[in-house]
Design a protein around this nucleic acid. Structure first.
Lengths: 212, 212
DNA sequence: AACTGTGAAGTTTTTCACAGCC
DNA sequence: GGCTGTGAAAAACTTCACAGTT
């Protein structure tokens, strides 16, 4: 997924930046204006050295003796992650999950706007789901290319997910957040990230005691 | 989260097992009975060497010259991950997200049963959400300890998430899947895994072109 | 006095490559 | 011939520790 062509900064570092950003926004909400790698690390369960090293990839955001100006660091990280703009996102799948995604308020202020909701199911097309009118998947390619959409979420059953991904790729999508519990096959120029709660649950059960 | 006291097998390995399992079940569904580290790796975008090394931690599951018997490997991995039993799970938060979780069918056949749905909101208590009657959070401790529940999902707004986590910890929960976009502070003996779609999205935008 | 940024050291993770078995 | 399991090598990642700045 790193799309690595002369990839200077490790992908694992990039993956942590959104976590830093989330914690920083939290600190800001609490009225705190300056923080340190140590404080941030405590909150995140990450060593302070790692935070300093990660941030150092992008230039000196901190001040020796003082720490990091929270507002400044937030702005810088947003810029690095290119979320100093609002990305429009298409959602495919208007079932329970797609509906929950459409209703979720948490995308707005973190760089994303859910802008379209598609479904393959005839009976759902034209229906209102939250603030969206469900559109036919046959419209997808046109909508996505006309609006230069680069990001989509897949919220259809596993059986249809690959087919939907193929359509998205064909339409020119560059990044997919896949909620279906299945690995997608896509060309190299397309990124996929996965959300599968069961994977996290199964990871944790390894460490639990089987109950009597 | 590894809970590391004489932790022989790396947590990163454990984290991949659910992915292997998911892919194996897929292969099985396709009617395939035997696979190889190479085939599995192709599907997952992981090297065959890594898969062999990961699996070797648990004993010789494969046959030289042949590969891995899918049914056998599935059984073994289920056993390693302790999902050869059904874990009962409590969900806290009966909003859009909690409702979507409650309706999701995908937990059943992968080791988990959503068994209770709680909410703090007076007006929601007693309401029917899917097959659940929403219960008051004041009942939580009793229900969880009486039923020896070890796993919970947090699906409340960020502002309430830490408070809910504290209640869960107090009730004896050992593993939390947190959907709220906030880092939880819990004692060492409690694991937390996070689901925050925005984190994945922000990870991907780093690699996208800002659009004109 | 407090904290950053960073080379160097240390640790973990991945890949290589091949002996051994089917 | 095909494939696993595994030491050894390589690469990646994290932590240490401290010089340098405020």
């Amino acid at each position: 997924m790193p799309l690595k062509l002369e990839n200077r900064i490790p992908d694992i570092v990039i993956g942590r930046l959104p976590l830093y950003l989330r914690a920083l926004n939290r600190l800001k909400q609490e009225g705190i204006e300056v923080t340190s790698s140590h404080e941030l690390g405590q909150r995140l369960g990450i060593s302070s050295a790692q935070i300093r090293k990660d941030l150092s990839h992008f230039g000196g955001f901190g001040k020796q003796g003082t720490g990091y100006q929270i507002n400044f660091l937030i702005t810088k990280l947003q810029s690095v992650l290119k979320i100093n703009q609002r990305w429009q996102v298409a959602v495919v799948g208007a079932g329970n999950l797609g509906s929950a995604i459409s209703h979720y308020r948490g995308f707005q202020d973190r760089g994303f706007e859910i802008a379209w909701l598609f479904d393959a199911d005839e009976s759902k097309i034209g229906q209102q789901v939250g603030r969206f009118t469900v559109q036919a998947i046959s419209e997808l390619k046109k909508v996505i290319s006309e609006n230069k959409i680069q990001i989509a979420m897949v919220a259809v059953p596993a059986e249809q997910a690959q087919e939907v991904a193929d359509i998205l790729v064909d339409a020119g999508i560059r990044a997919i957040l896949n909620y279906a519990p299945i690995n997608l096959t896509v060309p190299d120029h397309v990124m996929v990230q996965y959300i599968d709660p069961v994977v996290h649950m199964q990871h944790m059960t390894y460490y639990l005691d089987e109950n009597a």
